[in-house]
Simulated scan of single mutants.
Amino acid sequence: MKVLTRESREAAGAAGAVVVRACVQANPDAVLGFATGSSPLPLYDALADFGLDFSGVRGFALDEYIGLPPGDPRSYGAVIDSEVVQRLGMRPGSVLLPDVAAGDLEAAAREYEQAIRDAGGVDLQILGIGHNGHLAFNEPGAALDSRTRVEQLAERTRRANARFFDSPDQVPTRCMTQGIGTILDARQLLLVAHGADKADIIARALQGPVTPDCPASALQLHPRVTVILDQAAAAGLR
């Protein structure tokens, strides 16, 4: 595991963008895994400034809410479209999301796993980390070999995401998420995090025991991980 620190969230995002750029330059048809939330936004900002050709890149989203109406701007599909596909000049529809409108959600989860396999797997997975250590929407207690599935959101996660909604009651209670095992199948992982409020969980994830109680600790099991933090988020590391 390679851990890099930078002086600010913007600098950390720019350093993460350099890792993504190297992947795409080496393979213009790369398959990328895209995260949403606040952590990767500076990375996407920097990537847009690079002006890199993303026309051949395909991607998969980590997760999606269940229960939002189609086209809802708070859905991760809408965020991916505006922050990633349009800004980076990717082809429309080139980033797939779980089909949370399917009549059979379990079948939709299996089909999403198959779509990732059919694409040849993910070359580089971009990740953030939740305050309780969740990766994607794998909440504490998730099995470290879990696959794409329907998941119940923890109340702390819902409270953290309430800032994107008019009221906490509007935050969905369920989602479909890639499993930890699915994430670990990617050939390279890139975690970007910032802020003093992430320092404790970063320390647990990177230097504590590998345990389902901290899903992000599964990063320690992967052979090729880059973690880029601002100084505040890195403050708890030994």
Rank of each mutant, 00 (worst) to 15 (best):
V3Y: 07
L4W: 08
T5G: 02
S8E: 07
A14F: 03
A17Q: 02
V18H: 09
V20A: 07
A22M: 02
A22I: 04
C23I: 04
Q25E: 12
Q25S: 01
P28C: 10
F34H: 00
T36P: 01
T36C: 00
G37P: 14
P42I: 03
L43K: 08
L47M: 05
L47T: 05
D53A: 10
S55Q: 08
G56D: 12
R58Y: 05
A61K: 11
L62R: 12
E64T: 12
D72R: 11
P73H: 13
R74P: 13
G77L: 03
A78G: 15
I80K: 04
E83V: 10
V84F: 06
V84W: 01
R87C: 06
M90N: 07
R91L: 12
P92S: 07
L96F: 07
L96M: 06
L97E: 08
P98Y: 02
P98K: 04
V100P: 06
A102P: 02
A102F: 03
A102Q: 06
G103F: 07
D104I: 02
L105K: 14
A107Q: 11
R110A: 09
E111L: 05
E111F: 00
E113R: 10
E113M: 07
E113C: 05
R117A: 08
R117Y: 00
G120V: 03
G120Y: 05
G120Q: 06
G120T: 06
G121D: 01
V122A: 01
D123M: 03
D123G: 04
L124P: 04
Q125A: 12
G128F: 01
G130K: 08
H131I: 11
N132T: 11
N132C: 04
L135V: 00
N138W: 04
E139A: 03
E139K: 00
P140L: 01
D145H: 03
S146M: 04
V150D: 04
E151N: 13
E151F: 08
E151P: 02
L153Y: 12
L153W: 14
E155Q: 11
A160K: 15
A162E: 14
R163M: 09
R163Q: 14
F164G: 14
F165C: 15
D166K: 15
P168C: 09
Q170K: 13
Q170Y: 08
Q170E: 15
Q170L: 15
V171R: 10
V171Y: 11
V171G: 15
P172R: 14
C175S: 15
T177Q: 13
T182P: 10
L184E: 12
D185F: 06
A186V: 12
Q188K: 15
Q188S: 15
L189S: 10
L189E: 03
L190K: 00
L191Y: 14
V192C: 13
V192Q: 10
H194R: 10
G195W: 11
G195V: 12
A199H: 08
R204M: 12
R204N: 04
L206W: 09
P212T: 02
C214F: 09
P215Y: 06
S217A: 06
S217Y: 01
Q220N: 03
R224V: 02
V225P: 04
V225A: 07
V225K: 03
V227N: 05
I228E: 07
I228H: 01
I228T: 04
A234E: 05
R238E: 02
